[in-house]
């Protein structure tokens, strides 16, 4: 381990690798919820397809695509927020904050954990989707890369926001931290088009990068060519969201240092 590049980030990632390889229940949790969701939505898709006598097969397979891509964003977000909460729960947060770790290294470490969670769960989910429902995620070809990339970045930004909330309001905000991705889910058009939402909510939806990814996914599945434009827009929005989340995190850290909140969160 001599001369490890980015040692602080490696340390943060190694901590979670140790955690997940040591504990079978952790690994179980990693797969249980996404598999459960996939099976429920997969069987619903099959039922709706059969009920529609095949005519509705394309719209209902949108659901499966939505399930798989939503999991990317959710895992990325959780990787950042749960990694942070893990240090709160184990009263290790102070040890980390007094180590020579820069804020960006801490965030980069958590984001890497989020990426690893995606890398581990998505192939298994994709395989299950193919075996059980003949849904082939590789039909998206190279579009998969911007789909995944955009959702990862937005998931990271959400995770950073969730961590800022816990730092600012303590463990009382922990539930909110878990719920944050789900608070956005109804508005980000995972399983339906933006036009389905009431008119006043559509601008909110279009301000979320993930909305453009799910829209692009449906275009790709329908053989529509309007994919790239939405993904570029998603990327631009992601840059704004990520910058915003970074600024919020920095501001909250400054408030936490002023009010002594770091020690309160770490030792409560």
């Amino acid at each position: 381990m001599s001369g490890t590049p980015f040692p602080a980030i490696s340390g943060i990632v190694l901590r979670y690798l140790y955690l997940y390889t040591r504990n079978g229940l952790r690994a179980f949790e990693l797969f249980f919820w996404p598999l459960n969701t996939l099976l429920v939505w997969g069987f619903l898709t099959r039922y709706l397809t059969q009920a529609g006598e095949g005519g509705a097969s394309l719209p209902v397979t949108f659901l499966l695509g939505g399930v798989l891509l939503w999991d990317v964003q959710f895992r990325a977000s959780q990787g950042v927020s749960v990694s942070f909460l893990e240090d709160v729960w184990t009263r290790n947060l102070l040890n980390v904050f007094v180590a020579p770790v820069r804020t960006w290294e801490l965030v980069a470490g958590f984001c890497t954990v989020g990426l690893l969670r995606v890398i581990i769960t998505v192939p298994i989910l994709s395989l299950m989707a193919f075996l059980a429902f003949r849904f082939n995620i590789f039909d998206f070809n190279l579009w998969l890369i911007p789909f995944f990339g955009n959702l990862l970045i937005f998931g990271w930004a959400m995770g950073m926001m969730a961590n800022a909330m816990v730092l600012r309001w303590g463990q009382a905000a922990e539930g909110l931290s878990w719920a944050l991705p789900f608070l956005l889910q109804p508005f980000t058009a995972v399983y339906y088009t933006v036009e389905t939402l009431p008119g006043f909510l559509q601008p909110v939806s279009l301000a979320l990068p993930s909305t453009h990814v799910f829209e692009a996914m449906r275009h790709a599945m329908a053989g529509d060519v309007r994919i790239g434009q939405g993904l570029f827009l998603a990327f631009g929005l992601n840059l704004a969201w990520l910058t915003g989340a970074g600024l919020v995190m920095n501001r909250v850290l400054a408030i936490a240092r002023d009010k002594g909140l770091l020690t309160k969160v770490a030792t409560q």
Binding site: M1, S2, G3, P7, A8, G11, L14, R15, A99
Partner: peptide, 15 residues
């Protein structure tokens, strides 16, 4: 494992 993680966080050579 804990000590190895902190050795990395402190940027130590030959952890």
């Amino acid at each position: 494992q804990n000590l190895t993680v902190f050795a990395l966080l402190y940027g130590l050579k030959d952890c």
